Computed example of a mutant assay.
Amino acid sequence: MTKRKILEKDKTVTGFNVGINIGKDAGQTIMHCHIHLIPRRNGDVAEPQGGIRNVIPRKERY
């Protein structure tokens, strides 16, 4: 889904993170270009600094 379609469908989305896994050791399971567009919302985490680390429970402090 494109950024525009996400924003049209869900008005609570106020930002995005972009994630790319490159290589098996980085979590890539299918070896092709694959980009994750992660919608974010105001208040979805207490402290959004650090990007996607705060989206994954118990992984924000490492």
Results as ranks from 00 to 15, higher is better:
His36Val: 05
Gln49Asp: 12
Lys3Val: 15
Asp25Cys: 04
Ile30Thr: 12
Lys9Pro: 02
Tyr62Arg: 11
Arg61Ser: 11
Gly19Ile: 13
Pro48Asp: 05
Ile22Arg: 03
Gly51Val: 02
Gly51Ser: 13
Met31Thr: 08
Gln28Glu: 02
Asn54Gln: 15
Asp10His: 01
Ile52Gly: 09
Ile6Lys: 05
Gly19Trp: 07
His34Trp: 10
Glu60Met: 00
Asn17Ile: 11
His36Gln: 12
Glu60Val: 00
Pro39Ala: 03
Pro57Ile: 05
Met1Val: 08
Asn17Thr: 11
Arg58His: 15
Asn42Thr: 15
Ile6Gly: 00
Ile38Asp: 06
Val55Glu: 13
Glu8Cys: 07
Arg41Pro: 07
Pro57Ala: 03
Gly51Asn: 13
His32Pro: 00
Cys33Leu: 12
Pro39Thr: 08
Gly19Asp: 06
Asn17Val: 13
Lys3Glu: 10
Ile38Val: 15
Asn21Pro: 00
Arg61Ala: 09
Asp25Arg: 08
Gln28Leu: 05
Glu60Phe: 03
Met1Ile: 08
Val18Thr: 14
Glu8Ser: 11
Ile35Ala: 03
Glu47Asp: 15
Ile22Asp: 04
Lys5Gly: 03
Arg41Trp: 06
Lys11Cys: 02
Val18Phe: 10
Glu60Arg: 00
Ile38Gln: 10
Ile22Lys: 03
Asn42Val: 12
Ile52Met: 11
Lys59Asp: 06
Gly51Tyr: 10
Glu47Arg: 06
Gly51His: 11
His36Pro: 03
Ile35Thr: 14
Gly19Ser: 07
Lys3Ile: 14
Asn42Leu: 13
Thr2Arg: 14
Glu47Ser: 12
Asp10Ile: 00
Tyr62Ile: 09
Gly50Trp: 05
Ile52Asp: 01
Asn42Tyr: 11
Phe16Ala: 04
Gln49Arg: 14
Thr14Ile: 13
Asn17His: 15
Pro57Tyr: 04
Leu7Cys: 08
His36Ser: 07
Ala26Tyr: 01
Asn42Glu: 15
